[in-house]
Design a protein around this nucleic acid. Structure first.
Length: 422
DNA sequence: TCTGGGGTCCTAGGACCC
DNA sequence: TCTGGGGTCCTAGGACCC
């Protein structure tokens, strides 16, 4: 059996943990640049039907009127709280697959003698007691069914956020209950096509001929079909695989026209992604850079372009990557536009042990590696960008994204610790 | 005025190899 | 009339996830 543990309104819940004054009150968390709503707790959802990714400016009045508290996203806090949740889960089973920042699968093999419903409640209670975060627990024989059980644990009253699918009757009932569009792995496009042929529930889907599913929805659909029928097809990955692409692209706090600031932002993003690259001990072969204007605007002239360059030899050296990225950026930058975003993406990622030099280029020498390692150690100890490439410049305030309502980084910065006044 | 960011996997088709 | 057979690698595009 597999348990799927998922935090309720994770970002909003993280914010509330440190703000007892907001317990029981509506809270929403905004995307980067405070652009869209990306999380809302149940009190906020009860007030209004808040579609996720709704631009804030469209619904702000309504939310303010209802005394909803806004937060800018604080990924430092959420990432660290997530780590704590995962640590607690490993006390229940050595086999934990971290699926996303707020979801994990827990392998319960060998616990056949245990009362799984009771076990689910133990997981839920321990996380709440230690961290103050509410979670739901779904338990079933495959990942897709566990995910469905998790949904039922929260949506069906009386389950108290724990639900176990441990019999054929329960499996069928669960599938009949689930609308096809709510099933994990069935997105918008497939939902529409399936509804058109009369498939409205997960159960209907499992009654389709396998050949049709395979033909129309590829092997991905076939795996869903099998998993729903209780046949496990999705592997359990305890040790995360190295990433195949590492990218970042954030909207600027304000539109930029001049190449200089865009180059600085680009250098900054390269520093960020190459740090991630080094943390997984890999090197990148290709660097892609792209720029675009604000395509929501109907007054600004639109332009977008991208360029991929190949490194002479794969590398994770921030400085070498910045230089190549800048060359690429200069090829695609055209003056006269108001740019909204620059993005970078590293790909062709290989383990750093496998980097092959050639007659003309050798992998970075020892001195360079030592320098970069010192770089990472200093930034880990004293905080992000304590030392950085000069190509990042000093005008970060002129392009950095907007985070007006960011909460303190309670758990990772001494100077932002929670203060309790009696 | 204001509209997120970071990923994965699969397939088809083209170009190429012997 | 009739035009081989067995592969690899790469890319773009689509669908999906949180």
């Amino acid at each position: 059996m597999i348990a799927m543990v998922d935090c309720n309104s994770f970002y909003a819940s993280c914010e509330q943990v440190f703000r007892p004054d907001l317990w029981g009150k509506p809270v929403v968390v905004l995307s980067n640049n405070d652009g869209c709503v990306i999380a809302a707790n149940k009190e906020a959802k009860a007030l209004a039907d808040i579609p996720m990714f709704e631009p804030v400016f469209k619904i702000k009045k309504h939310l303010v009127k209802n005394k909803v508290t806004f937060f800018s996203s604080n990924y430092t806090l959420y990432g660290e709280m997530s780590q704590r949740v995962m640590n607690i889960l490993t006390t229940f089973s050595p086999e934990v697959e971290v699926y996303s920042i707020d979801e994990s699968f827990v392998d319960l093999s060998g616990m056949e003698h245990v009362d799984l419903n009771d076990y689910g409640h133990q997981v839920k209670n321990k996380i709440y007691r230690h961290l103050g975060l509410p979670v739901g627990v779904g338990i079933a024989s495959t990942k897709v069914l566990a995910k469905l059980a998790n949904r039922i644990s929260k949506k069906v009253a009386g389950n108290n956020h724990v639900f176990v699918i441990d019999s054929e009757e329960k499996r069928i009932d669960a599938l009949r209950w689930a609308k096809i569009g709510d099933v994990w792995g069935i997105g918008r496009k497939h939902t529409k096509r399936l509804q058109n042929i009369g498939v409205h529930t997960a159960y209907d889907f499992t009654q389709l001929p396998l050949a049709w599913v395979r033909r129309e929805m590829t092997v991905v659909g076939e795996r869903m079909w099998r998993e729903m029928r209780g046949e496990s097809c999705l592997e359990f990955t305890v040790i995360p695989k190295p990433k195949k692409g590492i990218g970042t692209a954030k909207s600027f706090g304000q539109k930029l026209r001049d190449l200089g600031r865009i180059e600085e932002a680009c250098a900054y993003y390269i520093s960020e992604v190459s740090e991630v690259l080094r943390a997984q001990r890999s090197c990148a072969t290709y660097v892609q850079v792209f720029v675009h204007t604000n395509y929501h605007s109907n007054v600004d002239e639109q332009y977008s372009n991208s360029k991929t360059v190949t490194m002479a030899i794969p590398t994770n050296d921030t400085f070498a990557l910045i230089i190549e990225a800048r060359k690429a950026l200069r090829l695609i930058y055209k003056p006269g536009y108001r740019y909204k975003k620059v993005g970078v993406c590293l790909s062709g990622i290989i383990p750093q042990e496998y980097v092959q030099g050639n007659l003309f280029h050798q992998p970075s020498g020892l001195n360079k590696n030592e320098l970069i390692r010192a770089f990472d150690r200093i930034n880990n100890k004293y905080g992000k960008s304590t030392v950085s490439s000069a190509m990042i410049g000093t005008r970060i305030n002129e392009w950095e994204l907007i985070k007006k309502e960011r909460s303190p980084r309670y758990t990772t910065q001494w100077e932002e610790l929670l203060e309790v006044n009696s």
